[in-house]
């Protein structure tokens, strides 16, 4: 097991080297540059040259690259040309927000999707089954921003029961030592702040979780349908076991294997940020920050954030593989 983990982590090195070079070239291939974006109307050739010299952008790209790699290895991701804050600081500020949002979305997707998929399969061919298939198709096709505005309209404006924007009520007296607002509320002994942060997560979580939900429903349904026809389920029935035992131990435990894979991939994707959802709900997360940085040609931020996303993606997939091994003994020994 340890060897497996080490091998997978070692694989990160070539991935990161390759990706960082591509990344470096790609951000520089964007038309315009940070100097032009920063100066705007005042971008005279002389001013642009001055700013470029200031950030070392006048050097050849490979020289810039080597210097950047050297800095990254020392833990210095550079400074944002847009906000003038260190990139690492921006990362630590926006990433926890996205983690909270992604987790909320996945809890929603799995918590609703697995039972729905299971019952659709159990009642295969009935109205519930058809409704779940049609509903998941709807969930996949509906645009996120549209769904986001609909949710805001219904729950926030009309019913007025949930907040529409941000991560925390600005009037609330709350401290944020970790950056994870729900957790912050709990560790600072301020349950009210935790609940408020939670309330701010519900609508964006649902908006972001709808597509994963639809996928989870479909995968669970198909997988349960397969497993229900397996001989070992018939064996379990023949033993006269309680329906709950058959469901949990014999059907779901096998049927959830493909669901785990999908959930892992989705979590990886969601952690890369959700620009649309974060924009609609004015949620100060990773995705929105990165989108703004693209507009500003903020090289340092783009390089740092995308590299970080790659690391997260690989780590999440590693976790999924470990989880897979825990559920499926055949993988463990192989």
């Amino acid at each position: 097991m340890l060897r497996f983990v080490v091998r997978r982590l070692a694989l990160l090195v070539p991935i990161l080297v390759g990706l960082s070079i591509l990344l470096f070239l790609w951000v520089r291939a964007l038309p315009g540059g940070p100097a032009e974006a920063l100066l705007g109307e005042r971008a005279t050739p002389e001013a642009v040259e001055r700013v470029q010299r200031l950030y070392g952008l006048d050097r050849p790209w490979y020289e810039q690259y080597l210097r950047w790699v050297g800095n990254v290895l020392r833990g210095d991701l550079g400074v944002s040309t847009r906000t003038q804050h260190p990139v690492l600081e921006e990362l630590l500020r926006t990433f926890p927000a996205t983690v909270e949002l992604a987790l909320t979305a996945m809890i929603f997707a799995v918590g609703v999707g697995v039972p729905l998929g299971y019952f659709a399969a159990r009642r295969h061919g009935t109205w519930l089954d058809h409704a779940s298939v049609a509903g998941s198709l709807f969930g996949i096709t509906i645009p996120v921003f549209f769904l986001g505005y609909m949710l805001k309209f219904a729950f926030a404006e009309k019913l007025g029961i949930l907040p529409t924007a941000g991560r925390q009520d600005p009037l609330m007296d709350a401290e944020h030592p970790t950056g994870f607002y729900v957790l912050d509320g709990l560790v600072t002994g301020n349950p009210e702040a935790a609940l408020d942060a939670l309330a701010h997560l519900i609508l964006p979580g649902i908006a972001l979780g709808t597509i994963p939900l639809a996928i989870v429903v479909r995968i669970t349904r198909a997988s349960v349908l397969d497993v229900l026809h397996e001989d070992y389920v018939r064996t379990a029935e023949a033993k006269g076991l309680r329906p709950a035992t058959i469901r949990g131990r014999h059907v779901l435990r096998n049927a959830l294997l493909p669901v785990v894979t999908i959930v892992g991939l989705q979590v990886g994707l969601l952690l890369g940020g959700a620009v649309l959802t974060e924009t609609v709900f004015a949620f100060p997360g990773f995705g929105k920050f990165m989108a703004d940085s693209i507009t500003a040609r903020d090289y340092a931020v783009l390089q740092g954030f995308i590299l970080f996303t790659a690391v997260i993606f690989v780590l999440v997939n590693l976790l999924v593989d470990i989880a897979y091994g825990l559920i499926d003994p055949r993988v463990r020994t192989a």
Binding site: D231, Y232, A238, N254, P329, R330
Partner: peptide
């Protein structure tokens, strides 16, 4: 009621032992 009889008074052994055991349960 039938579930209480099955496995206790009535039992069955199926044809294919390769597929009749749950692969993820000891």
């Amino acid at each position: 009621k039938l579930r209480l009889l099955r496995g206790r008074d009535l039992a069955i052994v199926f044809q294919d032992p390769m597929t009749s055991l749950n692969p993820v349960v000891p």
